[in-house]
Design a protein around this nucleic acid. Structure first.
Length: 662
RNA sequence: GCGUUCAUAGCUCAGUUGGAUAGAGCAACAGCCUUCUAAGCUGUGGGUCGCAGGUUCGAAUCCUGCUGGACGCACCA
């Protein structure tokens, strides 16, 4: 927060304390300060009707005068920051010393650099962010991209704000669907094993689609799949460890984790396939192979889009203990049998939660109960965020509800020390960060879109742009290739820029709107690089960098007292008010990061940074710096550097690649 | 049927958590590159904030009802 606002907060708190003997904390006071809708009203305003809450019951006009009077007579230091204070209706409007404001903000940004915008929490909390979580039986599509980039961005934001963040990818590697997959793999005799090695995900998806289609007419397939899943789960249980042992291993070293992720030495060929399919352990090996091949492929894609995880987990790891938890709940009477399945009646919810199927196998929900408890034992989190689509709201409500029940029933009989110790403390720490669906998503050919193809498409579009070739005939006539738009690049650099621009477009497209709204998918919107897009932001940052270079580079940062003159931009200069607007926008960065954090909403930062980029581009277009006196240029160089720092800090939070030139 | 959620310019979306005159970007039209990157900038047109009530000094924002869409609702995840 800037010194100007700090000062106003002090004014408000002391006004309320002296006049009405009430204490108001600084956060409350900050909420009373608003930015007027139009700059001609002032830079900050305090609305007197808000003060009624703190004991000022008079007419709003009278309260406003009282406040103004107090500010002028009892709060001398206010004059150091504000040049004018005036009343307009119920509002008391403050006008800052603009020269000073610009100076203070620019200096502040340069001083903090990569850390600008950061504010540390009172006590650092441990936050787990569970996101992306692709399903091994399904393609990594655009729906998963949303969870992936929202989760990654939230992780960046929490980390930036001083939280201890753990990024977990909870792979969908279990469930009846894998019974289906095994059924498909074993049933079809025409599997191309070469294709399988080359692109396992696509091959698996092929199987998935095929079996689903066939299952609609051949009902025995479903039956077969369920049976195969039951066998799979039984095999997992065969290797089941004691819960404590499991945790001990996990905590002991990263090696265990690594070992579990490693590709098992399993080779399945057309010749030996039937041997694998014939036994339960053989099927278990098939599943293990599918799983590890998929994880490798996922990692390759994450690497491509610049995203990383601290931990890869899978549902199968929780499946080991799901039955045990179901048993505890059942024995304690919190769960009951219904139509052969096990259910938990919930508080304030009509439909009970189903935690075990009638054939005894586990469900998503029961595995999630285990996972949350295990993670509590392992990481002792203060908060765990699930970044999952809104269509799973009911599931998470059920999950949270069950933990509320466990909190209220701490003493249920059970002989599992881990569950006993941690299950009751999970309640209240889980958050479902949901997001809307993407509607009408399909390739131009009409199928579901794989992430990589999606990125390729964006990259190709960027290539065209760089090469100055427009697809549209009309455009290509009007837009000859120009060296000016695209300085001569090496082919390799073109590829690199195109990929980053493509990623910028695709990622920003998922982060620019509020999570909750469903987005109508439209190729033209995603592949647009103009206006409110990622490339616009990347372009703006690159442009500033280029401008700074052209102006001779950023001089040494002045230190301390000397700085006043150096950063000074004069009131009389023609660009003064535009620069002030930029400084004003810069000063709001920290507030916007906090807003994004509080709402778990990266789009707050997106909107903010688009506005800053727009202000800069207007400035750039309206005022020319090259060729001016260095005296004039110098303070503006610092300003440019400050804008660039904020842009880059924001782009990093949004997982958008940064380019030096484009 | 029940639950969740959404409805703002032709399209995609913001809207400081109830405050001053509802804003951007696309698209359309008219302009701006021998001069700092035109992935940019300037201007014009475009609104019954789904509809109807209510709450109060004040509503796009809160409450109720209605209409319309999306999603979910017992052995998928």
């Amino acid at each position: 927060m800037d010194a100007f606002k700090e000062n106003l907060i002090s004014l408000i708190t002391s006004f309320i304390r002296e006049k009405n003997k009430q204490d108001i904390d600084r956060e409350e006071a900050e909420k009373l300060i608003k930015t007027p809708p139009d700059a001609s009203y002032g830079d900050y305003s305090v609305a007197s009707y808000y003060l009624a809450k703190y004991g000022f019951k008079g007419k709003t006009g009278d309260v406003a005068s009282e406040f103004l009077n107090y500010a002028q007579t009892n709060f001398e230091q206010i004059k150091d920051f504000f040049s004018k204070i005036e009343i307009k209706g119920p509002y008391v409007n403050f006008f800052v010393h603009k020269e000073k404001f610009i100076r203070v903000i620019v200096e502040d940004v340069l001083k903090h650099d990569n850390d600008y915008g950061r504010s540390l929490p009172r006590k650092p909390e441990k936050v787990i962010i569970d996101f992306s979580s692709p399903n091994i039986a399904k393609p990594f599509g655009v729906g998963h991209l949303r969870s992936t980039v929202i989760g990654m961005s939230l992780a960046n934001i929490y980390e930036f704000c001083g939280y201890n963040v753990l990024k977990i990818n909870y792979l969908g590697d279990f469930g009846t669907q894998f019974g289906k997959l095994i059924t498909a793999f074993c049933r079809y005799g025409d599997i191309d094993f070469h294709e399988f090695e080359k692109d396992p995900i696509k091959a698996l998806y092929g199987l998935y689609v095929r079996i689903h289609k066939e299952a609609q007419t051949d009902l025995s397939l479903e039956e077969d799949a369920r049976l195969n899943f039951k066998r799979l789960e039984e095999n997992i249980l065969k290797y089941r460890r004691a819960l404590e042992k499991h945790l001990e291993n996990l905590q002991n070293s990263a090696n265990i984790q690594k070992k579990e992720d490693e590709c098992p030495d399993i080779k399945i060929t057309a010749e030996n396939k039937s041997a694998f399919c014939g036994t339960g352990t053989g099927q278990y090996d098939i599943w293990r192979l599918f799983r590890s091949l998929s994880i490798e492929e996922f990692k390759r894609i994450y690497n491509l889009i610049g995203i990383s995880f601290d931990v890869y987990e899978g549902e199968s790891q929780s499946a080991e203990f799901a039955n045990e938890v179901v048993e505890i709940l059942y024995k304690s009477g919190l769960a009951a049998e219904s139509e052969g399945a096990i259910i938990v009646p919930l508080k304030d919810m009509k439909t009970p939660a189903l935690i075990a199927k009638s054939d005894g196998t586990s469900l998503y929900l029961s595995r999630d109960i285990v996972t949350a408890v295990l993670r509590m034992a392992k990481y002792n989190y203060d908060k765990m965020i699930y970044v999952v689509g809104s269509e799973q709201s009911l599931h998470f409500n059920q999950l949270f509800n069950i933990f509320d029940i466990l909190r209220d029933n701490k003493d249920i009989p059970n002989n599992n020390p881990i569950f006993q110790k941690y299950a009751s403390s999970v309640s209240g720490r889980l958050v479902h960060v949901k997001f809307g669906r993407i509607i009408g998503m399909s390739t131009r050919k009409g199928n579901l879109v794989f992430l990589e193809d999606y990125i390729d498409e964006a990259k190709a579009k960027a290539m065209e742009k760089i090469a100055g070739i427009a697809k549209d005939d009309k455009l290509s006539l009007e837009m000859p290739p120009t060296a000016k738009v695209n300085p001569s690049y090496e082919q390799k650099e073109i590829e690199d820029i195109a990929l980053k621009v493509g990623l910028g477009a695709v990622i920003f497209n998922d982060l620019k709107t509020r999570r909750n709204t469903d987005v109508n998918f439209n190729w033209d919107n995603v592949l647009s690089f103009e206006g409110q897009t990622g490339p616009y932001l990347q372009y703006t940052a690159a442009r500033i960098g280029s401008l700074i270079d052209k102006l001779g580079g950023l001089p040494e940062k002045p230190a301390g007292a000397e700085s006043e003159g150096v950063y000074r931009i004069r009131r009389e200069d023609e660009d003064f008010s535009d620069i002030y607007n930029i400084a004003k926008q810069i000063s709001l960065f920290g507030d916007n990061i906090q807003g994004a954090l509080n709402l778990n909403e990266p789009s707050v930062i997106s909107s903010y940074i688009l506005e800053l980029a727009s202000l800069f581009n207007k400035y750039y277009q309206n005022y020319r710096l090259l060729g001016r006196d260095y005296e004039y240029i110098k303070p503006r160089l610092y300003l440019l550097a400050a804008i660039k720092i904020v842009l880059i800090n924001a782009l990093k939070l949004l997982c958008i690649p940064i380019l030096e030139r484009m």
